[in-house]
Every structure is written in C-alpha cells, then in structure tokens.
Measured scan of single mutants.
Amino acid sequence: DHDVVPEDKFQETLHLKEKEGCPQAFHALLSWLLTQDSTAILDFWRVLFKDYNLERYGRLQPILDSFPKDVDLSQPRKGRKPPAVPKALVPPPRLPTKRKASEEARAAAPAALTPRGTASPGSQLKAKPPKKPESSAEQQRLPLGNGIQTMSASVQRAVAMSSGDVPGARGAVEGILIQQVFESGGSKKCIQVGGEFYTPSKFEDSGSGKNKARSSSGPKPLVRAKGAQGAAPGGGEARLGQQGSVPAPLALPSDPQLHQKNEDECAVCRDGGELICCDGCPRAFHLACLSPPLREIPSGTWRCSSCLQATVQEVQPRAEEPRPQEPPVETPLPPGLRSAGEEVRGPPGEPLAGMDTTLVYKHLPAPPSAAPLPGLDSSALHPLLCVGPEGQQNLAPGARCGVCGDGTDVLRCTHCAAAFHWRCHFPAGTSRPGTGLRCRSCSGDVTPAPVEGVLAPSPARLAPGPAKDDTASHEPALHRDDLESLLSEHTFDGILQWAIQSMARPAAPFPS
C-alpha cells in the first residue's frame, strides 16, 4: 500500500487522527484517494484483494465477484509491481515495509483507509498491559489484515481490525468495519463480527460495544468508541475503539438485554438511515425525530424517553415518601432524547437536551391539597369587569335574561352582576328603583315568574340570613337542586349567576 499512500500523506493522516480522531482521518484520506487517478484506485483494489485478505475476510469475495470481468485485479505471486511496468521484474528490497512494521508496532494501528489505518492507538496503548502477550500477537497480524480498504464507483468500504477477539475476553470487541457502500446513491455502514460483515439490516451488537450512531460526518466517531472515555459513568459499556482492553462492566443492572439487537429503522417514522440506538431497549431513532430533536450524538450512555420514564417511576415512589426537613431528592440522569409524543421536562434553567451534561430531575413533595375552585371561562368573567365610571356595571355583549332568554333592554344586578328583565323577575308590577337594581334572587323575592315553557326556580334557592346585616342577608345558599333548576333554563347567565354566588365573597367592612 506504500505505492498507493505516500509517506507524507501517511504522516498527515496520523497527525489528523491524533488531533480530530479516526473518523475524520478516514474521511480525509478517502476524499484524497478519490481525487487520484484511476491507476492509484486500481492499485488500491489490488492491494485489498490479496489472497491473505480474501482468506481472512470471507465477505470480500462477493465484492470481488461483483467487479466487471474485464477488470484485472489479480496479484502476481513473485511480488508487487506497478501496473504500468511491462516487465515482470522483482521490485527492489522494500524498506517501507520495515517502516510500516515499526510504526504500526509503535502506534498499534494508524488512522488511514489502508491496512495502516483504523484502530485507535492511544486507547490501545492505555489498555494494553493486562493483555500484552495476546495483543502483541495481534499486532503482528495487523499489517496483514488490519485495514481492508475498498473503493469503487459501486462499493466503497473501509475495514478496521481490532485485537478484541482475544480468547477469554468477556464481551470482547470482535472488530470495527467502517463501511461506506455507495449503492444507488445511498450510504450504509456496517460492522465486522468474527470475520463476517453485518449491514444495518442485520447488524449484531457484538459483546459490549454497539453501533451508536451510523454517521460518517462530524467530529463524533462512527461508533461511540473513545478509548479514553473507558466505561460509562454508571458502569455503562465498553467502547469499540478500545482495542485489546480488559473486560469492562457491560450494562447497567436495569438493562433488559446485554447482547440485544437494535432495530435498523426509526421507532417514530419507521424509516432507515442514520440512527441513534438506545442503551436500554432495542429501539433506534433519527436525531430529527426525537422531541426535542438533537443536533449531535450525546457522549456516554444514552437512553430513550421510555427508558428514562421507567427509571424515574422506579425512583419516584421512594422520593415521595414523607421525609421531614430533607432537601428534594435529586436523581442524576443521562441526557435523554425524547421520541415524538413523549416529553420529560427538567427543571427550568437546565441546558437543552443533547448537550454533554447531566440533567437533574428533582422530585419535590406534593403540595397540600386544596379545595378545587369553580372553573370559569374568561368570557364568563367579562360582565364582572365591565364597570362604568360611576361604579355601575355596563352590559356585556350577548347578555340575556335568565328567565325569558331575551337580551333586549336587559338590566344588570348590582349584587350578582346577572342580566335580567324587571318585568320577568317582578311581574307583579313592583316599581323599579332608580339605583341599586337587584334581581329577584338578590332582592329576596322568590315568586316564580309566569313564563310559559320555563321551569320556575326551586323555592330553596334563597336562604336569607339575619336582617340586621343587609349585605350578609342576601347571601344565597345554592344546592344541587338549585343548579339543576338553573340548568333547565338553558341560559348561560343562569349558570354564571350560580357560579358567582357559589364563590365566597369577603364580608362587608363594618362602618367606622
């Protein structure tokens, strides 16, 4: 592969990997390779389809078979030569091979799209000592099968071997295949498990690692696999990028399955594409389908809103127990993405979901129960707010008499603000006073009005108090039968009158 990737590009890729991570280095090298001529790309395919690569990765054979028959990708048995050289000459001794072996032994695996480039050397060096003999053996194999790289107009793939297949390693990572398949204008990513390549439709969760975000852009890794992070704060999961590491605690105790298979379609829109997988259930989501939507993949363990709600429900009964003089119970939860139609709101002032922060849900004790107040519409209280300059209440639009249902020339009671006709409430011909108009209920007259088809109010509507207090003497005590009587009149003013009279009014101040 030294004929494909020059030394300066190799060093530039290593520097970019240390600065921005393996995914960015892979993407940059792939983009550079696509700008080369067809001879360089053909050399790339020839390096990929060597015999030892085909033996190690069985899924490469179907890719090789898909090439046109007129494309010669065979390799000479006596060494490598550029395709432009007409004579089959043995190339001179390859010093770059020693360079590659020494550099890969030092860096474990470079971040390139060629056999030198995919593992994360920093994480491997940190986690190597417990498994040094086995990992050293794996390093000797890295130059042979560490990076199976493929690129063409139909298929483009980048393979990364790992030393996680050490025997006896619980939940060992089998390997990473960062794979971009450009077929019919689409893009897919796969993962390699035990020599087999699994596409998103049959993606397997190998051991402790999972394909957290099938994305090839942005600074985030394709698999949430930063070796420096180790395990999740809650004892979460091992990262795919942690090559040759000792077994780590796999999943939280509440995880239903340690080796679950995540779905390959969004649980909201039932469509495929780039998904984020939940650590607590097999569901996966688009970032845009979450509520609120996320802009980037959160670091650490992530769970959907259903799993978060289940966790909150487990903690909430203990938080609601009476604990005198104790601060509110704080339950730190990872930043969760909410699927459509589901929402768990945190306290005000918290950062938005999706940031690399930890939301704190506070379970406050329930407030003391209070008697429910009568629910009145805002339009129902409008007549009470229509007060004239002299303190006389004006008529609201649409006000109707509670007896006849007519809204023409209605009066407004100064005591309960109900609309009424003087002739309907006082049919006996009582003279109307000039000021202080009161309806039949507030004036103490319980004589029913002779209106055909309208039920008369119940005599129990009024329960006047002592006459010594004029204001308190007109406080009506309405009961269920009074409400039914008012409802039978089918008037809004009657219902409003009952609601206003049912509310307690402050006692009249004593004259000074």
Rank of each mutant, 00 (worst) to 15 (best):
L258C: 10
P253V: 13
V312E: 10
W302R: 14
A267V: 11
G300C: 12
P427M: 12
A284R: 09
E452F: 11
M355K: 11
G407K: 05
G402M: 04
P348W: 04
C442I: 02
T408D: 02
L487V: 04
C289Y: 08
W302L: 10
L290E: 15
V360S: 07
D255P: 12
P464K: 07
A418K: 08
G280C: 15
C442K: 00
P351A: 10
E263H: 15
F285A: 09
C304N: 15
P433W: 14
G346E: 10
L287D: 12
V268S: 10
D377S: 13
A366N: 07
C304A: 15
P476W: 05
P253W: 15
L486H: 01
F426I: 04
V246R: 10
L462C: 09
D445F: 07
E320H: 08
E452D: 10
T331M: 15
G402I: 04
A449D: 14
S458W: 10
N262K: 10
G336S: 09
A460N: 10
N394P: 12
D264H: 08
A419K: 05
L287T: 12
R440N: 10
R295P: 13
C424S: 01
T447H: 12
R338V: 13
R400F: 06
E314R: 13
C266V: 04
D409F: 01
L462E: 10
G300I: 07
Q392I: 11
S441M: 02
T414R: 06
A507G: 10
S299L: 12
C413T: 01
V446S: 09
A340S: 09
P328E: 09
S458A: 10
A366E: 08
E296T: 10
Q325V: 11
L483Q: 03
R318I: 05
D406Q: 09
P374N: 14
A467P: 08
Q393E: 11
C277Y: 10
F426A: 02
L364Y: 07
P511I: 12
G375R: 08
A449T: 03
R505K: 12
Q260N: 07
R295M: 11
S378Y: 11
L352T: 08
P292F: 10
Q243M: 10
N394C: 11
P459T: 14
S485K: 13
D469E: 09
E326P: 09
D470L: 10
S458C: 13
P372I: 15
M503W: 04
K261E: 03
S299N: 15
A371G: 08
